[in-house]
Design a protein around this nucleic acid. Structure first.
Lengths: 159, 159
DNA sequence: ATACAATTAATGTAACAACAATTAATACGC
DNA sequence: GCGTATTAATTGTTGTTACATTAATTGTAT
């Protein structure tokens, strides 16, 4: 098992909190890379998987591009293109929205639901790596992440 | 202050550990995006900053491309091109290594050290957002991140 | 009703990342 | 010493991201 220091070959850190910041970035990169490789087996990217999950969540109700974007982990402007890709694979359908013609009604297809079904079991086994940590500790862990996100964003904007 | 659930508009989570996994990814995305915007003021990307930090660490000794890559948070094969960019900006120099002519001796320049100096103060103020959490808690926080990284990587490879 | 602002989705673009392939130099086995 | 394997750095390619812009539709104030 490799510590942060071993992984980035750095022996000294200025403080425990600086170490924590680096550790989050490194850990997320690792998670992301692992996810990338994992989802490739299903010919999906992590972002595409995220979109399908969101659509399964609202199913059978449709979802607009904007709602997808708001629910995504990565809030960039690629939801439209991600939907393109998934539509080409037949995993979702896109049709104009009657009520507001600016919007698009996006629905997950049977094939989309099926692929999520295939992914569920192996993916859950990956997510369960944290079972060895107690819920109480994880709750605090999540709290700290929430703090970091909010304060860091503010700090970066302030500078 | 926004919780994970508020940020991705999801009210229910399957478990505290699934929530933690999502939270790490979201938090890292936020940090990365904030860093992106922050470093743009200095005409640098977060990765370029990372390279300069590594070079300041070994300074005045030179560093090879491979050592840079090993120390980077993102272990991809772009170190060479990052070095290109930084050389073009005059922030580092590149010269063939005498002992092993496959390698390149990379050194940070005065201008490179200067820009790091300019960045140090505002960046440290950003990193200090975690001062409100005790060192003891942060130590455990770092431990949990180490566990996640190692176990997740293994789990993804096993599937 | 009409002009103007706001919202939604799609696209153009430049830069960047992932991965493979290439080139050059060195190490190693025989 | 010679051929092969390994290592270091670079480059090519393909796809993606970030950001800005555009186009179409709807909301709103007068």
């Amino acid at each position: 098992m490799l510590s942060l220091g071993e992984e980035i070959k750095q022996t000294k850190f200025k403080s425990e909190h600086q170490k924590a910041m680096l550790n989050i970035l490194l850990t997320a990169n690792t998670l992301y890379a692992s996810n990338n490789r994992f989802f490739k087996k299903f010919d999906l990217s992590p972002e595409q998987y995220n979109v399908l999950r969101i659509l399964r969540g609202t199913h059978p109700k449709p979802c607009s591009v904007l709602s997808i974007q708001e629910r995504m982990l990565d809030k960039m402007s690629n939801a439209s293109r991600l939907v393109d890709k998934l539509e080409a694979k037949g995993l979702l359908t896109r049709k104009p929205c009657k009520e507001d013609r600016r919007q698009v009604d996006i629905n997950i297809t049977k094939a989309g639901l099926q692929i999520l079904d295939d992914i569920d079991v192996p993916f859950e086994s990956m997510e369960s790596v944290l079972e060895c940590v107690s819920d109480k500790e994880l709750a605090r862990f999540n709290e700290i992440l929430d703090i970091i996100r909010n304060k860091y964003r503010d700090a970066a904007n302030a500078v």
